[in-house]
């Protein structure tokens, strides 16, 4: 139990620091690497919360495939994208001040809403041994992937099918947008 607590604090610090790095780094490539670090930390959080399969696809798909695509575009546009990071100074300070102020208000209200909302109350009422019921349910179905697949095709099969349509549309959109305009 104490191990989980220590892991939580270390991971929380790493997650928030790498998240801040995404916003604060001047160089877009550094922001990118910070984001990958952030996604890996979140995958560890998911492991801590008993989601082995979700943690795996987080690493494989998000930190792997999606971020490689991202890094490819960032490095392709990098030299000119850097120029965009050095604007008129007065305006920049104003934007940062307003943005940070609004975000602090948002963070406060989100924390209150999340920790005292109806779902959080249900979670607290669910019992003194959190995660155990989930672990039992997963074990009764034969494992993490089995539990995920069972839930996906019992009640979430329609959203799953819509997902495939969404991906096809996204691929078509990328093909249309990526085509050289001179051909049409």
């Amino acid at each position: 139990m104490i191990g989980t607590t220590i892991a939580f604090y270390v991971l929380a610090a790493a997650t928030l620091l790498s998240g801040a790095g995404v916003v604060l780094f001047r160089d877009a490539v550094y922001s990118m690497l910070s984001l990958i670090c952030n996604l890996l930390c979140l995958a560890l959080f998911f492991l801590l919360l008993g989601g082995l399969f979700i943690a795996t696809i987080q690493v494989l798909i998000y930190a792997g495939a999606v971020m490689v695509l991202f890094l490819f575009v960032v490095t392709m546009l990098a030299p000119d994208a850097q120029a965009a990071g050095t604007p008129a100074p007065g305006r920049q300070i104003w934007q940062w001040g307003a943005g940070t102020g609004l975000a602090v208000i948002l963070a406060g209200s989100l924390i209150v809403a999340l920790t005292s909302g109806a779902v959080a109350r249900d979670a607290r009422a669910a019992g003194g041994d959190p995660g155990n019921g989930l672990a039992e349910h997963v074990a009764s179905l034969g494992g993490n992937v089995e539990a995920f697949g069972y839930a996906l095709f019992h009640g979430f099969s329609f959203p799953f099918e819509v997902t495939s349509a969404l991906l096809v549309v996204a691929v078509l959109g990328a093909v249309v947008l990526g085509r050289r305009a001179s051909r049409s």
Binding site: A12, L16, G19, V23, F45, L77, Q95, L102, A107, L114
Partner: peptide, 27 residues
Amino acid sequence: ANGYLIVSALLFAIGVVGVLARRNPLV
């Protein structure tokens, strides 16, 4: 649960700062 939720809320707020204050569309 509160610890995880607070980390989540702070991370969301950091993301909001990024969208509001940065001018590079990639970031």
